[in-house]
């Protein structure tokens, strides 16, 4: 029985890592731009399709396709930012919060329907990163999931390094903490917004590209992960990168273990997606700012 629980834990960790890639991207966008990107799940989907076509049509190695796909989604993000989000920083847009919600929501619906039209509604499977299954002692782990874990950790470490140690990362944090002060010291906040949006949706794209061979891709694949990443960033504390990572792992574990420990085993999976919300409700009850949230989040 021990092996059973251990297998659940490993599974939860891997799923949590994918959540983390998405949620950290969302959190980064939120903390720098002060907007919630409702198209995040759809950027995840675009990442899945980009890397699928890179691997199947252009012959990229599936792992290389993940990184190139991520760059592709970043490019899409930059385009979206320059064309549709930039008006946010001009006095022309007065109700910035509403503008951002409507705009990103619309972009999401557009991307989903575009994918439906371009790629068709059928489920697709990107080629395996490494085919087969690895047996670790008594654990069977799909090799693709191992690659997901490995690449996911690498991307996450690079991101944490950039945010924490480099000058660019400091500037991103500076803008997130005080936009005007950052402008005062010479940081161009619009450029930082562009960078944060690009990196943020790029991370979602990487998550989608990584998950392709494991959970398959389709135009609607992003809806649920999108919702989950909102749950995660509220759970972890809006704008907190560390909070987003910890909350993601937590959610992965709770979903994995929750659905097997659930009182009525025939309904465990039916409520799987509810566990996250339950966890959220409990945490918010005791800590309304989320696990690592700041007291005040200024929406402007």
């Amino acid at each position: 029985m021990l092996e059973f629980y251990l297998a659940q834990v490993v599974n939860g960790l891997i799923v949590g890592l994918i959540y983390a890639l998405m949620a950290v991207g969302l959190s980064l966008i939120f903390s720098v731009l002060k907007i919630v990107n409702f198209a995040h799940g759809d950027c995840y989907m675009i990442g899945g399709f980009f890397s699928y076509y890179l691997a199947t049509l252009l012959g990229f190695h599936p792992i290389a396709a993940v990184f190139v796909g991520m760059l592709g989604v970043m490019a899409v993000g930059i385009l979206i930012h320059q064309l549709l989000l930039k008006p946010l920083y001009t006095p022309k847009v007065e109700r910035k919060g509403e503008y951002a919600i409507l705009m990103t929501f619309g972009i999401g619906i557009f991307l989903q329907n575009l994918a439906m039209a371009l790629f068709g509604p059928w489920t697709k499977r990107p080629p395996d990163f490494i085919p087969g299954v690895t047996k670790l002692g008594f654990l069977f782990i799909d090799n693709n999931r191992l690659v997901v874990a490995g690449v996911g950790i690498v991307i996450m470490l690079v991101l944490l390094y950039v945010i924490g140690r480099t000058f660019i990362g400091k500037a991103l944090r500076a803008v997130s903490q005080d936009r005007d002060a950052a402008a005062i010291v010479g940081v161009n906040p619009v450029r930082m917004n562009l960078l944060a949006f690009g990196i943020g949706v790029g991370l979602a794209g990487a998550a989608g590209a990584l998950i392709g061979p494991v959970f398959l891709i389709s135009p609607v694949m992003g809806i649920l992960p999108g919702v989950k990443s909102f749950v995660i960033i509220v759970l972890g504390g809006m704008g907190s990168i560390r909070g987003a990572i910890i909350a993601s792992i937590l959610l992965g574990l709770v979903e994995s273990l929750g659905s097997v420990f659930f009182l009525d085993p025939t309904r465990g999976l039916a409520y799987k997606n509810a566990f996250g919300v339950l966890l959220l409700a409990l945490v918010l009850l005791f800590k309304p700012t989320g696990l690592f949230g700041e007291k005040f989040v200024r929406l402007e």
Binding site: K170, A171, D180, A182, I184, V185, V187
Partner: peptide
């Protein structure tokens, strides 16, 4: 030029040194 607004505007979640270093952004 340099500008110090009336409103407190340190980067609250950065250390003192990180704050100062941010002042060097233009010649980083």
């Amino acid at each position: 030029l340099a500008y110090i607004p009336q409103r407190r505007n340190v980067f609250r979640y950065m250390t003192v040194e990180e704050n100062l270093v941010m002042g060097a952004w233009t010649f980083r």
